[in-house]
Design a protein around this nucleic acid. Structure first.
Lengths: 211, 211
DNA sequence: ACTGACTGACTGACCAACAAGTGAACGCCA
DNA sequence: TGGCGTTCACTTGTTGGTCAGTCAGTCAGT
């Protein structure tokens, strides 16, 4: 039987491993030097590989970093979806989403990456597509959690779509603040998010799950 | 009487005018090409001037763009302060702030500039300082408006500081969204901001001033 | 008022550094 | 042994910054 996907030989395994390693290295480099200042030579060095090889796997620098961000976006999306599809009440899911996405530290890796990505996306159609798709998908997932909670009578939420969008925007704003200001504490940021979420679903903040 | 400030000769007038023109050109270039891709040669060309002159007025490329953003930040801050110091009820002032800062279009100039600036600030101490100072000052002004409204009994606001911070974060998040997604309408964004603000001060959205 | 020495804004050619991408050659694995 | 992953030397283009020279504007002394 000839499968459409190529056989999984040692060679092809190595190939996909290299590609993955390059993408991972690209992310590390983008985190350290910033997306705008990242060089393909850096990615090559970080992978202990010649610069030419990078161009063997990726047609251009742009291609490399776009793919890297696509992979990162996929991870983020998977992360929310796992929470939403997991066990627990809608309320606890909502709280877990907040704990997962409200930035933890001023040097929170993913936030730094996305702030860079936003700027780059202003002038790059492909990037803009990736980011808006991630953003919309994220909102959709949270919207569904809110809808479930409202349907089961756990809380009230007259406008799940709007609530999810507002939460997303708030978290993005907090993410920027946390990434740029050192003295901002995670505790405070999380509390701001919880308070806003509580108002969106008409419950008291105190009713959010402990820990 | 010998004044500390230099005489206002034709020469010095021209000097400050040149400097201002270069800063303005730098902003235009940053808007068009993006902060990361902006070249000093672009700024020179946009001012109809030789590249060398740019370095005569500004010690380095960094210096040029940092100064440009400092000027832009000053303008933004002046803008809020004028609203806060102006006439009208606290409620109407709050609404005017929202109308002023919730992005108007996907290509809203100042939002594009600040998104670029956030990314650059991740790796630039001087920029980070400018941005956090602007951000904190903005919040302080809004906080004062909220405090005034609460003091006069116009509305309730138990935590003006937190409310101002949350509003700032929400607006930033909406700004990103509006800048990256075309199909987002200003009307919707403004409505999200108004709704959140209304909840912060315990009034009904409908009570926000018409138009 | 005039002038001549002087200052400093400005030019434009130039450079050194750097970075993306190319392609021929090479060697390892199936 | 053939082809694919990989290297390395190289080309090409770009860009921030420099510098010697120029000329308009300024000002002190007459």
């Amino acid at each position: 039987m000839t499968s459409a996907t190529p056989r999984r030989t040692k060679r092809t395994e190595q190939l996909v491993a290299r590609r993955a390693a390059l993408l991972e290295a690209a992310e590390r480099v983008a985190l350290e030097r910033g997306l705008a200042a990242a060089r393909v030579a850096d990615v090559a060095a970080a992978t202990d590989v010649s610069p030419g090889l990078v161009h063997y796997h990726f047609s251009s620098k742009d291609d490399l970093f776009v793919e890297m961000l696509r992979a990162a976006a996929d991870r983020e999306l998977t992360s929310v979806q796992r929470i939403a599809d997991g066990p627990g009440s809608a309320l606890s899911k909502l709280d877990r989403v907040l704990r997962e996405f409200v930035p933890t530290r001023s040097d929170d890796q993913s936030w730094v990456l996305w702030i860079d990505a936003w700027a780059a996306a202003l002038r790059d159609e492909a990037l803009r597509k990736i980011i808006t798709e991630l953003d919309n998908a994220w909102i959709d997932v949270v919207e569904q959690v809110l809808r479930d909670g409202a349907a089961s009578g756990e809380f009230r939420c007259p406008d799940p779509s709007g609530s999810a969008l507002r939460l997303s925007a708030l978290i993005d704003g907090l993410g920027i603040r946390m990434s740029l200001q050192d003295r901002q504490s995670r505790r405070a940021a999380l509390q701001h998010a919880r308070l806003t979420a509580a108002r969106e679903i008409g419950v008291d903040v105190e009713d959010f799950p402990r820990r």
